[in-house]
Design a protein around this nucleic acid. Structure first.
Lengths: 116, 116
DNA sequence: TTGACATATTCCAGAATTGGAATATTTTGA
DNA sequence: TCAAAATATTCCAATTCTGGAATATGTCAA
Protein backbone atom coordinates (compact mmCIF):
# COMPACT_ATOMS: atom_id res chain seq x y z
CA UNK A 1 0.00 0.00 0.00
CA UNK A 2 1.04 3.57 -0.66
CA UNK A 3 1.73 6.48 1.51
CA UNK A 4 -0.91 7.30 4.05
CA UNK A 5 -2.56 10.66 4.55
CA UNK A 6 0.12 12.98 5.79
CA UNK A 7 -0.85 15.74 3.44
CA UNK A 8 -3.00 18.65 4.41
CA UNK A 9 -1.41 18.54 7.80
CA UNK A 10 0.48 21.40 9.40
CA UNK A 11 3.62 19.40 10.06
CA UNK A 12 3.85 18.54 6.42
CA UNK A 13 3.13 22.04 5.29
CA UNK A 14 6.18 23.37 7.10
CA UNK A 15 8.36 20.46 6.12
CA UNK A 16 9.09 22.25 2.87
CA UNK A 17 11.94 24.77 3.19
CA UNK A 18 10.41 27.12 0.67
CA UNK A 19 7.14 27.14 2.53
CA UNK A 20 8.92 27.92 5.75
CA UNK A 21 10.54 30.85 4.05
CA UNK A 22 7.17 32.07 2.89
CA UNK A 23 5.90 31.87 6.44
CA UNK A 24 8.93 33.73 7.72
CA UNK A 25 8.51 36.41 5.13
CA UNK A 26 4.86 36.93 5.90
CA UNK A 27 5.66 37.06 9.59
CA UNK A 28 8.36 39.65 9.10
CA UNK A 29 6.74 41.84 6.50
CA UNK A 30 3.06 41.34 6.98
CA UNK A 31 0.58 40.47 4.25
CA UNK A 32 2.12 40.31 0.79
CA UNK A 33 0.88 39.88 -2.75
CA UNK A 34 2.08 36.86 -4.70
CA UNK A 35 4.28 38.89 -6.97
CA UNK A 36 6.23 40.26 -4.05
CA UNK A 37 6.90 36.76 -2.78
CA UNK A 38 8.01 35.72 -6.23
CA UNK A 39 10.59 38.48 -6.22
CA UNK A 40 11.82 37.84 -2.71
CA UNK A 41 12.06 34.09 -3.00
CA UNK A 42 13.35 34.02 -6.55
CA UNK A 43 10.93 31.30 -7.41
CA UNK A 44 8.67 30.97 -10.41
CA UNK A 45 5.19 32.35 -9.95
CA UNK A 46 3.39 29.04 -10.35
CA UNK A 47 5.64 27.48 -7.75
CA UNK A 48 4.84 30.22 -5.28
CA UNK A 49 1.14 29.96 -5.97
CA UNK A 50 1.26 26.24 -5.35
CA UNK A 51 3.09 26.56 -2.08
CA UNK A 52 0.67 29.21 -0.99
CA UNK A 53 -2.09 26.82 -1.90
CA UNK A 54 -0.71 24.20 0.46
CA UNK A 55 -0.34 26.72 3.25
CA UNK A 56 -3.85 27.96 2.65
CA UNK A 57 -5.35 24.49 2.73
CA UNK A 58 -3.86 23.98 6.14
CA UNK A 59 -4.99 27.39 7.28
CA UNK A 60 -1.57 28.86 7.86
CA UNK A 61 -2.32 31.68 5.47
CA UNK A 62 -5.44 33.49 4.37
CA UNK A 63 -6.10 35.41 1.19
CA UNK A 64 -7.70 38.74 0.46
CA UNK A 65 -8.33 40.25 -2.91
CA UNK A 66 -6.94 43.65 -3.62
CA UNK A 67 -7.50 44.67 -7.15
CA UNK A 68 -6.02 42.03 -9.34
CA UNK A 69 -3.63 40.89 -6.72
CA UNK A 70 -4.14 38.54 -3.85
CA UNK A 71 -2.81 39.47 -0.48
CA UNK A 72 -1.57 36.54 1.53
CA UNK A 73 -1.48 36.94 5.25
CA UNK A 74 -0.06 34.71 7.90
CA UNK A 75 -2.42 33.12 10.39
CA UNK A 76 0.29 32.05 12.77
CA UNK A 77 -1.93 30.46 15.37
CA UNK A 78 -2.28 27.50 13.07
CA UNK A 79 1.32 26.72 13.93
CA UNK A 80 0.41 26.14 17.53
CA UNK A 81 0.05 22.36 17.17
CA UNK A 82 3.66 22.18 16.09
CA UNK A 83 4.75 24.34 18.94
CA UNK A 84 2.77 22.28 21.41
CA UNK A 85 4.34 19.14 20.10
CA UNK A 86 7.99 20.17 20.31
CA UNK A 87 7.54 22.14 23.47
CA UNK A 88 7.34 18.88 25.35
CA UNK A 89 10.97 18.22 24.53
CA UNK A 90 12.19 21.65 25.51
CA UNK A 91 13.45 20.35 28.84
CA UNK A 92 15.89 18.06 27.08
CA UNK A 93 18.12 20.89 26.03
CA UNK A 94 17.30 23.42 28.70
CA UNK A 95 19.62 24.03 31.60
CA UNK A 96 19.89 21.28 34.16
CA UNK A 97 20.45 18.77 31.44
CA UNK A 98 22.30 16.31 33.60
CA UNK A 99 19.59 15.84 36.14
CA UNK A 100 16.84 15.53 33.55
CA UNK A 101 18.82 13.13 31.48
CA UNK A 102 19.81 11.00 34.41
CA UNK A 103 16.23 10.78 35.56
CA UNK A 104 14.97 9.86 32.10
CA UNK A 105 17.55 7.15 31.77
CA UNK A 106 16.86 5.74 35.18
CA UNK A 107 13.16 5.50 34.44
CA UNK A 108 13.88 3.97 31.11
CA UNK A 109 16.04 1.20 32.44
CA UNK A 110 13.54 0.44 35.15
CA UNK A 111 10.78 0.12 32.60
CA UNK A 112 12.84 -2.08 30.37
CA UNK A 113 13.81 -4.29 33.23
CA UNK A 114 10.24 -4.89 34.34
CA UNK A 115 8.96 -5.25 30.80
CA UNK A 116 11.03 -8.34 30.04
CA UNK B 1 12.38 19.32 -12.04
CA UNK B 2 11.36 17.03 -9.21
CA UNK B 3 11.22 17.44 -5.55
CA UNK B 4 14.20 19.12 -3.99
CA UNK B 5 16.17 17.78 -1.09
CA UNK B 6 13.82 17.96 1.81
CA UNK B 7 14.74 14.54 3.09
CA UNK B 8 17.25 13.96 5.83
CA UNK B 9 16.03 17.10 7.47
CA UNK B 10 14.48 17.25 10.92
CA UNK B 11 11.30 18.95 9.80
CA UNK B 12 10.66 16.21 7.33
CA UNK B 13 11.46 13.49 9.78
CA UNK B 14 8.70 14.60 12.10
CA UNK B 15 6.26 15.31 9.31
CA UNK B 16 5.31 11.65 9.38
CA UNK B 17 2.67 10.87 12.02
CA UNK B 18 4.09 7.44 12.72
CA UNK B 19 7.51 8.85 13.28
CA UNK B 20 6.11 11.39 15.69
CA UNK B 21 4.51 8.56 17.59
CA UNK B 22 7.81 6.77 17.77
CA UNK B 23 9.42 9.89 19.15
CA UNK B 24 6.63 10.28 21.70
CA UNK B 25 6.97 6.69 22.75
CA UNK B 26 10.70 6.90 23.21
CA UNK B 27 10.27 10.09 25.17
CA UNK B 28 7.70 8.57 27.46
CA UNK B 29 9.18 5.14 27.96
CA UNK B 30 12.86 5.59 27.35
CA UNK B 31 14.98 3.48 25.06
CA UNK B 32 13.10 0.64 23.41
CA UNK B 33 13.96 -2.32 21.23
CA UNK B 34 12.40 -2.45 17.78
CA UNK B 35 10.10 -5.30 18.70
CA UNK B 36 8.55 -3.31 21.47
CA UNK B 37 7.79 -0.46 19.11
CA UNK B 38 6.27 -2.90 16.66
CA UNK B 39 3.88 -4.07 19.33
CA UNK B 40 2.98 -0.63 20.57
CA UNK B 41 2.46 0.96 17.21
CA UNK B 42 0.85 -2.04 15.59
CA UNK B 43 3.00 -1.59 12.54
CA UNK B 44 4.91 -4.18 10.59
CA UNK B 45 8.50 -4.67 11.64
CA UNK B 46 10.04 -3.50 8.37
CA UNK B 47 7.97 -0.35 8.49
CA UNK B 48 9.19 0.44 11.99
CA UNK B 49 12.78 -0.27 11.04
CA UNK B 50 12.50 2.08 8.12
CA UNK B 51 11.04 4.89 10.15
CA UNK B 52 13.72 4.40 12.74
CA UNK B 53 16.21 4.61 9.94
CA UNK B 54 14.94 8.02 8.95
CA UNK B 55 15.00 9.25 12.51
CA UNK B 56 18.48 7.91 12.94
CA UNK B 57 19.79 9.59 9.83
CA UNK B 58 18.63 12.90 11.17
CA UNK B 59 20.04 12.16 14.57
CA UNK B 60 16.77 12.15 16.47
CA UNK B 61 17.47 8.63 17.71
CA UNK B 62 20.57 6.62 18.43
CA UNK B 63 21.02 2.88 18.48
CA UNK B 64 22.74 0.52 20.87
CA UNK B 65 23.13 -3.20 20.48
CA UNK B 66 21.88 -5.38 23.27
CA UNK B 67 22.19 -9.00 22.36
CA UNK B 68 20.24 -9.53 19.22
CA UNK B 69 18.09 -6.54 19.77
CA UNK B 70 18.76 -2.91 19.02
CA UNK B 71 17.83 -0.35 21.58
CA UNK B 72 16.62 2.91 20.11
CA UNK B 73 16.93 5.94 22.26
CA UNK B 74 15.65 9.44 21.74
CA UNK B 75 18.13 12.25 21.33
CA UNK B 76 15.62 14.99 21.79
CA UNK B 77 18.00 17.88 21.46
CA UNK B 78 17.94 17.30 17.73
CA UNK B 79 14.41 18.65 17.81
CA UNK B 80 15.63 22.01 18.95
CA UNK B 81 15.73 23.52 15.45
CA UNK B 82 12.03 22.87 15.12
CA UNK B 83 11.35 24.37 18.49
CA UNK B 84 13.43 27.40 17.69
CA UNK B 85 11.55 27.89 14.47
CA UNK B 86 8.01 27.77 15.83
CA UNK B 87 8.89 29.54 19.02
CA UNK B 88 9.07 32.75 17.05
CA UNK B 89 5.36 32.57 16.45
CA UNK B 90 4.44 31.83 20.01
CA UNK B 91 3.42 35.41 20.62
CA UNK B 92 0.71 35.16 18.02
CA UNK B 93 -1.45 33.00 20.23
CA UNK B 94 -0.24 34.03 23.62
CA UNK B 95 -2.27 36.34 25.81
CA UNK B 96 -2.54 39.94 24.63
CA UNK B 97 -3.45 38.75 21.22
CA UNK B 98 -5.32 41.87 20.24
CA UNK B 99 -2.47 44.24 20.77
CA UNK B 100 0.05 42.04 19.02
CA UNK B 101 -2.21 41.45 16.11
CA UNK B 102 -3.13 45.08 15.75
CA UNK B 103 0.50 46.05 15.75
CA UNK B 104 1.41 43.43 13.18
CA UNK B 105 -1.36 44.55 10.91
CA UNK B 106 -0.50 48.18 11.24
CA UNK B 107 3.12 47.52 10.32
CA UNK B 108 2.01 45.37 7.45
CA UNK B 109 -0.20 47.98 5.87
CA UNK B 110 2.46 50.62 6.30
CA UNK B 111 4.99 48.46 4.53
CA UNK B 112 2.65 47.68 1.72
CA UNK B 113 1.78 51.29 1.28
CA UNK B 114 5.38 52.43 0.99
CA UNK B 115 6.34 49.48 -1.18
CA UNK B 116 4.16 50.48 -4.04
C1' DT C 1 27.31 -26.05 14.14
C1' DT C 2 22.55 -25.44 13.75
C1' DG C 3 18.18 -23.39 14.39
C1' DA C 4 15.39 -19.79 16.23
C1' DC C 5 14.97 -14.95 17.21
C1' DA C 6 15.54 -9.82 16.24
C1' DT C 7 16.29 -6.59 12.98
C1' DA C 8 17.80 -4.68 8.52
C1' DT C 9 17.65 -4.51 3.63
C1' DT C 10 16.00 -5.12 -0.98
C1' DC C 11 12.60 -4.98 -4.41
C1' DC C 12 8.14 -3.74 -5.91
C1' DA C 13 3.88 -1.00 -6.57
C1' DG C 14 0.88 2.80 -5.93
C1' DA C 15 0.54 7.28 -4.74
C1' DA C 16 2.17 11.83 -3.91
C1' DT C 17 5.47 15.95 -4.41
C1' DT C 18 7.58 19.48 -6.93
C1' DG C 19 8.95 22.40 -10.63
C1' DG C 20 8.24 23.97 -15.39
C1' DA C 21 5.62 25.18 -19.38
C1' DA C 22 1.50 26.37 -21.17
C1' DT C 23 -2.87 27.99 -20.48
C1' DA C 24 -6.97 29.71 -18.04
C1' DT C 25 -9.12 33.22 -15.10
C1' DT C 26 -9.95 37.55 -13.09
C1' DT C 27 -9.50 42.39 -12.93
C1' DT C 28 -8.05 46.83 -14.32
C1' DG C 29 -7.47 50.60 -17.43
C1' DA C 30 -7.79 52.71 -21.90
C1' DT D 1 -14.82 46.00 -25.47
C1' DC D 2 -9.97 44.81 -25.48
C1' DA D 3 -5.24 44.26 -24.04
C1' DA D 4 -2.24 43.86 -20.27
C1' DA D 5 -1.30 42.58 -15.50
C1' DA D 6 -1.64 39.29 -11.56
C1' DT D 7 -2.52 34.95 -10.21
C1' DA D 8 -4.37 30.22 -10.50
C1' DT D 9 -4.74 25.89 -12.74
C1' DT D 10 -3.64 22.04 -15.63
C1' DC D 11 -0.61 18.79 -17.54
C1' DC D 12 3.74 16.57 -17.61
C1' DA D 13 8.07 14.37 -16.03
C1' DA D 14 11.32 13.05 -12.60
C1' DT D 15 11.77 11.78 -8.15
C1' DT D 16 10.47 10.33 -3.65
C1' DC D 17 7.72 8.10 -0.10
C1' DT D 18 5.58 4.38 2.25
C1' DG D 19 4.07 -0.19 3.03
C1' DG D 20 4.35 -5.15 2.08
C1' DA D 21 6.63 -9.35 0.96
C1' DA D 22 10.60 -11.73 0.71
C1' DT D 23 15.07 -12.18 1.98
C1' DA D 24 19.51 -11.14 4.16
C1' DT D 25 22.21 -10.43 8.33
C1' DG D 26 23.56 -10.96 12.88
C1' DT D 27 23.29 -13.17 17.38
C1' DC D 28 22.17 -16.29 20.92
C1' DA D 29 21.29 -20.99 22.73
C1' DA D 30 21.57 -25.75 22.74
Amino acid sequence: MPRSATTADVFNAIAEPRRRRIVELLAAEGAQPVGELVLRLKLAQPAVSKHLGVLREVGIVTVTKRGRQRLYELDAKELKPVHDWVKVFERYWTAQLDRVKARAERMASERNASAE
